[in-house]
Protein backbone atom coordinates (compact mmCIF):
# COMPACT_ATOMS: atom_id res chain seq x y z
CA UNK A 1 0.00 0.00 0.00
CA UNK A 2 2.84 2.35 0.98
CA UNK A 3 4.73 1.48 -2.20
CA UNK A 4 1.67 2.16 -4.35
CA UNK A 5 1.10 5.52 -2.63
CA UNK A 6 4.76 6.47 -3.17
CA UNK A 7 4.48 5.56 -6.87
CA UNK A 8 1.33 7.64 -7.33
CA UNK A 9 2.80 10.66 -5.54
CA UNK A 10 6.03 10.35 -7.56
CA UNK A 11 4.04 10.23 -10.78
CA UNK A 12 1.99 13.28 -9.77
CA UNK A 13 5.08 15.27 -8.77
CA UNK A 14 6.84 14.32 -11.99
CA UNK A 15 3.83 15.46 -14.00
CA UNK A 16 3.60 18.79 -12.19
CA UNK A 17 7.35 19.49 -12.45
CA UNK A 18 7.54 18.56 -16.13
CA UNK A 19 4.54 20.72 -17.01
CA UNK A 20 6.08 23.73 -15.19
CA UNK A 21 9.42 23.19 -16.95
CA UNK A 22 7.60 22.81 -20.26
CA UNK A 23 5.69 26.05 -19.72
CA UNK A 24 8.84 27.94 -18.78
CA UNK A 25 10.56 27.13 -22.08
CA UNK A 26 10.31 29.89 -24.70
CA UNK A 27 7.58 29.10 -27.18
CA UNK A 28 9.81 29.08 -30.23
CA UNK A 29 13.40 30.10 -30.40
CA UNK A 30 14.59 31.50 -33.69
CA UNK A 31 16.60 28.83 -35.37
CA UNK A 32 19.23 31.13 -36.89
CA UNK A 33 22.33 32.78 -35.46
CA UNK A 34 22.02 36.50 -34.71
CA UNK A 35 25.26 37.77 -36.20
CA UNK A 36 26.05 41.29 -34.96
CA UNK A 37 27.50 43.67 -37.60
CA UNK A 38 28.53 47.28 -37.90
CA UNK A 39 27.31 49.26 -40.92
CA UNK A 40 29.36 52.35 -41.78
CA UNK A 41 28.58 54.98 -44.40
CA UNK A 42 31.08 57.75 -45.19
CA UNK A 43 30.85 60.75 -47.47
CA UNK A 44 34.32 61.82 -48.60
CA UNK A 45 35.66 64.79 -50.53
CA UNK A 46 38.55 63.52 -52.61
CA UNK A 47 41.19 64.98 -54.91
CA UNK A 48 40.89 64.76 -58.69
CA UNK A 49 43.73 62.19 -58.76
CA UNK A 50 42.10 59.99 -56.10
CA UNK A 51 38.76 60.31 -57.89
CA UNK A 52 40.30 59.03 -61.13
CA UNK A 53 41.97 56.17 -59.27
CA UNK A 54 38.70 54.72 -57.99
CA UNK A 55 37.61 52.06 -60.46
CA UNK A 56 35.16 49.23 -59.92
CA UNK A 57 32.47 48.76 -57.31
CA UNK A 58 34.61 47.84 -54.35
CA UNK A 59 38.08 48.51 -53.02
CA UNK A 60 40.00 46.90 -50.22
CA UNK A 61 42.41 49.79 -49.66
CA UNK A 62 41.81 53.02 -47.84
CA UNK A 63 40.42 55.98 -49.79
CA UNK A 64 42.32 59.20 -49.18
CA UNK A 65 40.05 62.17 -48.69
CA UNK A 66 38.37 64.53 -46.28
CA UNK A 67 35.60 62.86 -44.31
CA UNK A 68 32.57 65.16 -44.47
CA UNK A 69 30.22 62.69 -42.84
CA UNK A 70 30.50 59.34 -41.14
CA UNK A 71 27.46 57.46 -39.90
CA UNK A 72 27.66 54.05 -38.28
CA UNK A 73 25.28 51.71 -36.52
CA UNK A 74 25.50 48.39 -34.68
CA UNK A 75 22.97 45.99 -36.09
CA UNK A 76 22.35 42.29 -36.67
CA UNK A 77 21.53 39.92 -39.48
CA UNK A 78 18.17 40.39 -41.13
CA UNK A 79 16.88 43.29 -39.01
CA UNK A 80 16.32 46.80 -40.37
CA UNK A 81 17.86 49.65 -38.41
CA UNK A 82 18.32 53.38 -38.69
CA UNK A 83 20.27 56.33 -37.35
CA UNK A 84 19.23 59.93 -37.86
CA UNK A 85 20.94 63.14 -36.82
CA UNK A 86 19.25 66.31 -37.94
CA UNK A 87 15.83 67.88 -37.96
CA UNK A 88 12.27 66.73 -37.98
CA UNK A 89 10.64 69.36 -40.16
CA UNK A 90 6.84 69.60 -39.90
CA UNK A 91 4.69 70.23 -42.93
CA UNK A 92 1.15 71.19 -41.94
CA UNK A 93 -1.67 70.83 -44.43
CA UNK A 94 -5.45 70.63 -44.46
CA UNK A 95 -6.80 67.18 -45.31
CA UNK A 96 -10.33 67.63 -46.75
CA UNK A 97 -11.16 63.95 -46.34
CA UNK A 98 -10.29 63.89 -42.66
CA UNK A 99 -11.65 67.45 -42.39
CA UNK A 100 -8.76 68.52 -40.24
CA UNK A 101 -5.19 69.70 -40.32
CA UNK A 102 -2.55 66.99 -40.58
CA UNK A 103 1.13 67.16 -39.80
CA UNK A 104 3.67 65.25 -41.77
CA UNK A 105 7.30 65.25 -40.67
CA UNK A 106 10.14 65.47 -43.13
CA UNK A 107 13.50 64.22 -41.86
CA UNK A 108 16.52 66.23 -42.90
CA UNK A 109 20.18 65.89 -41.95
CA UNK A 110 22.25 62.70 -41.85
CA UNK A 111 20.23 59.54 -42.06
CA UNK A 112 21.13 55.90 -42.63
CA UNK A 113 18.59 53.10 -43.10
CA UNK A 114 20.18 49.67 -43.43
CA UNK A 115 19.18 46.05 -43.59
CA UNK A 116 22.02 43.52 -43.78
CA UNK A 117 21.71 39.83 -44.43
CA UNK A 118 24.13 36.97 -44.63
CA UNK A 119 24.36 33.22 -45.14
CA UNK A 120 25.08 30.88 -42.23
CA UNK A 121 28.84 30.98 -42.97
CA UNK A 122 28.73 34.79 -42.32
CA UNK A 123 31.46 35.52 -44.90
CA UNK A 124 29.69 38.04 -47.13
CA UNK A 125 26.78 40.40 -46.62
CA UNK A 126 23.81 41.35 -48.76
CA UNK A 127 23.25 45.07 -48.34
CA UNK A 128 20.04 47.06 -48.59
CA UNK A 129 20.91 50.63 -47.74
CA UNK A 130 19.54 54.14 -48.06
CA UNK A 131 21.55 57.04 -46.83
CA UNK A 132 20.76 60.71 -46.94
CA UNK A 133 22.77 63.82 -46.20
CA UNK A 134 20.43 66.75 -46.71
CA UNK A 135 20.65 70.32 -45.57
CA UNK A 136 17.80 72.81 -45.42
CA UNK A 137 18.83 76.31 -46.35
CA UNK A 138 17.64 79.86 -45.86
CA UNK A 139 15.95 81.57 -48.73
CA UNK A 140 17.50 84.83 -49.75
CA UNK A 141 15.06 87.67 -49.71
CA UNK A 142 16.50 90.91 -51.15
CA UNK A 143 15.28 92.76 -48.08
CA UNK A 144 15.42 90.14 -45.39
CA UNK A 145 17.22 86.83 -44.94
CA UNK A 146 14.87 84.32 -43.41
CA UNK A 147 13.91 80.69 -43.61
CA UNK A 148 10.60 79.79 -45.17
CA UNK A 149 8.56 78.32 -42.36
CA UNK A 150 6.27 76.14 -44.45
CA UNK A 151 8.24 74.83 -47.39
CA UNK A 152 11.94 74.62 -46.63
CA UNK A 153 14.31 74.18 -49.51
CA UNK A 154 16.38 71.05 -48.99
CA UNK A 155 19.54 69.99 -50.79
CA UNK A 156 19.66 66.23 -50.52
CA UNK A 157 22.40 63.77 -51.34
CA UNK A 158 20.77 60.34 -51.41
CA UNK A 159 22.00 56.82 -52.18
CA UNK A 160 19.66 53.89 -52.31
CA UNK A 161 21.30 50.58 -53.15
CA UNK A 162 20.92 46.84 -53.01
CA UNK A 163 24.25 45.03 -53.31
CA UNK A 164 25.00 41.31 -52.93
CA UNK A 165 27.97 39.52 -51.35
CA UNK A 166 29.95 42.41 -49.88
CA UNK A 167 32.99 41.17 -47.98
CA UNK A 168 33.59 42.36 -44.43
CA UNK A 169 36.02 45.29 -44.45
CA UNK A 170 35.72 46.03 -48.19
CA UNK A 171 34.73 49.54 -49.23
CA UNK A 172 31.69 49.59 -51.48
CA UNK A 173 31.77 52.72 -53.62
CA UNK A 174 28.09 53.59 -53.73
CA UNK A 175 28.41 56.84 -55.64
CA UNK A 176 30.95 59.14 -57.30
CA UNK A 177 30.02 62.73 -58.06
CA UNK A 178 31.93 65.57 -59.66
CA UNK A 179 31.11 68.69 -61.65
CA UNK A 180 28.79 71.65 -61.06
CA UNK A 181 26.17 69.70 -59.06
CA UNK A 182 28.73 68.37 -56.59
CA UNK A 183 30.23 71.86 -56.33
CA UNK A 184 26.81 73.39 -55.74
CA UNK A 185 26.10 70.83 -53.00
CA UNK A 186 29.41 71.53 -51.29
CA UNK A 187 28.72 75.27 -51.51
CA UNK A 188 25.39 74.67 -49.76
CA UNK A 189 27.29 72.96 -46.94
CA UNK A 190 29.81 75.79 -46.90
CA UNK A 191 32.57 73.30 -47.69
CA UNK A 192 33.46 74.05 -51.29
CA UNK A 193 37.11 74.69 -52.03
CA UNK A 194 39.10 76.03 -54.99
CA UNK A 195 39.73 72.47 -56.20
CA UNK A 196 39.06 68.82 -55.40
CA UNK A 197 35.29 69.21 -55.19
CA UNK A 198 34.59 65.54 -55.85
CA UNK A 199 32.28 63.49 -53.69
CA UNK A 200 32.53 59.76 -53.01
CA UNK A 201 30.01 57.78 -50.97
CA UNK A 202 31.51 54.67 -49.34
CA UNK A 203 29.78 51.88 -47.44
CA UNK A 204 31.46 49.20 -45.34
CA UNK A 205 30.42 46.36 -43.04
CA UNK A 206 32.64 45.30 -40.15
CA UNK A 207 32.59 42.75 -37.35
CA UNK A 208 31.78 44.50 -34.06
Amino acid sequence: MKKQLARISLGLLLGVCLSVVGQAQPKKEEDFERFPMVAIFRLLRVSDAEFQKLKGNTTTGDIAGEELLSTEILTERGRPCLVHLGRKWPLTYYDPRAKQYQIQYVDTGAKLDVSLNTQDDNKTVNVEMRNEASRTVSTTDPNQEQELTVYPRAFPYINEINYPNLKYGDNLIVSKLSGPTALSYLKTLGLAGAANNNLVGVFRVEHP
Partner: peptide, 22 residues
Amino acid sequence: TETSFPIARGQTAIISRVSGKF
Protein backbone atom coordinates in the same frame (compact mmCIF):
# COMPACT_ATOMS: atom_id res chain seq x y z
CA THR B 1 18.78 55.34 -33.46
CA GLU B 2 16.59 52.30 -33.90
CA THR B 3 18.28 48.91 -33.90
CA SER B 4 18.63 45.44 -32.39
CA PHE B 5 21.66 43.30 -31.60
CA PRO B 6 22.88 40.44 -29.39
CA ILE B 7 24.90 41.32 -26.27
CA ALA B 8 26.26 39.61 -23.16
CA ARG B 9 25.50 40.76 -19.62
CA GLY B 10 28.16 43.24 -18.47
CA GLN B 11 29.04 44.34 -22.01
CA THR B 12 28.69 47.84 -23.42
CA ALA B 13 27.64 48.42 -27.02
CA ILE B 14 28.49 51.43 -29.16
CA ILE B 15 25.10 51.56 -30.82
CA SER B 16 25.70 54.40 -33.23
CA ARG B 17 28.16 57.13 -34.10
CA VAL B 18 27.95 60.23 -36.29
CA SER B 19 30.82 62.56 -37.11
CA GLY B 20 32.18 64.93 -39.72
CA LYS B 21 31.91 68.58 -40.70
CA PHE B 22 28.42 67.94 -42.07
